[in-house]
């Protein structure tokens, strides 16, 4: 049942990707609504698949690569749908969200069969906050980069993609998503620090993942400073948003897979 639900979600995300790509390729934006609807449709079986796995293994989606990436894709699509409801003019950002969610599910499926008990240190509400906000941080960083990419496209051809708002609105959206991502990263670090104290008796230990989170937070602060204090706008701010996304991806996915760290019980099956 779990696998049927999972593949239903994958199919919906794949179809949403096609719909959004068609919308972008046609320059008219037609197909945006269908894409958003397909993402919403895929979210239902996706939630059920995550819920069934949670019940089966007795812990949240935060250990194996399947659990981590599937839940990350779920929250990315969820964050996008909340955005699309609150700001309908940003619905075309789904053109970035749908393929990322689809690819995430594709990377997740290789460890679908892997199930394991989590270490006892995972028995903490701080961990739920830590992981929940880590996922939201990654999702909002993707949305910021998607807004920046849309800004670049719209500012080069102002007449194209009429369903997108003005470049200035897209630039503001990228900045706001980056700020929200910065906030979520901050909450993730605080909750992680409190969890570390419960688990290891210290708040901070300069573990590679801890340090990478701090470095990413500082990098976001630098990027935001460029806009707020130095008045950076336009394409160079968009490129800096991509740099911020690169930091976010490194922290969320790369460090734990290439360096020995206390976070090695995360993304098991990599």
């Amino acid at each position: 049942m779990q696998s049927v639900l999972f593949w239903s979600a994958v199919t919906a995300y794949a179809l949403a990707t096609v719909a959004f790509f068609t919308a972008v390729a046609s320059r008219s934006g037609r197909g945006t609504g269908s894409g958003a609807a397909l993402l919403a449709l895929g979210l239902v079986p996706h939630a059920a698949a995550i819920g069934l796995r949670w019940i089966e293994v007795g812990h949240g989606p935060y250990q194996t690569r399947y659990e981590v990436l599937s839940a990350d894709a779920f929250l990315l699509v969820g964050a996008y749908l909340v955005t699309a409801l609150a700001a309908r003019h940003l619905r075309l950002l789904g053109a970035a969200v749908a393929p990322v969610a689809f690819l995430g599910m594709g990377l997740a499926v290789a460890t679908f069969a892997l199930k394991a008990e989590v270490p006892i240190i995972f028995k903490s509400w701080w961990l739920v906050l830590h992981i929940g906000f880590a996922k939201l941080f990654a999702a909002t960083a993707v949305l910021a980069a998607a807004s920046a990419a849309a800004y670049l496209a719209k500012s080069r051809r102002p007449g194209s993609l009429p369903r997108l708002p003005s470049p200035e609105r897209l630039e503001l959206a990228a900045h706001q998503f980056l700020l929200v991502s910065f906030l979520f990263l901050g909450v993730m670090i605080v909750a992680g620090s409190l969890w570390a104290n419960e688990s290891w008796g210290r708040y901070w230990g300069w573990d590679p993942m801890e340090t990478s989170s701090l470095v990413t937070w500082l990098a976001f602060a630098v990027v935001l400073h460029f806009r707020v204090l130095h008045g950076w706008r336009g394409p160079r701010m968009a490129y800096l948003t991509f740099v911020a996304l690169a930091f976010a991806v490194s922290t969320a996915y790369l460090v734990a897979t290439i360096v020995p760290t206390i976070h090695n019980s995360y993304m098991v099956g990599r």
């Binding site: 573990d207 340090t211 990478s212 701090l214 470095v215 500082l218």
Partner: peptide
């Protein structure tokens, strides 16, 4: 601080 922390941790 960012650069130093990254280098120090690695």
């Amino acid at each position: 601080l960012g650069g130093y922390a990254a280098a120090g941790a690695w």
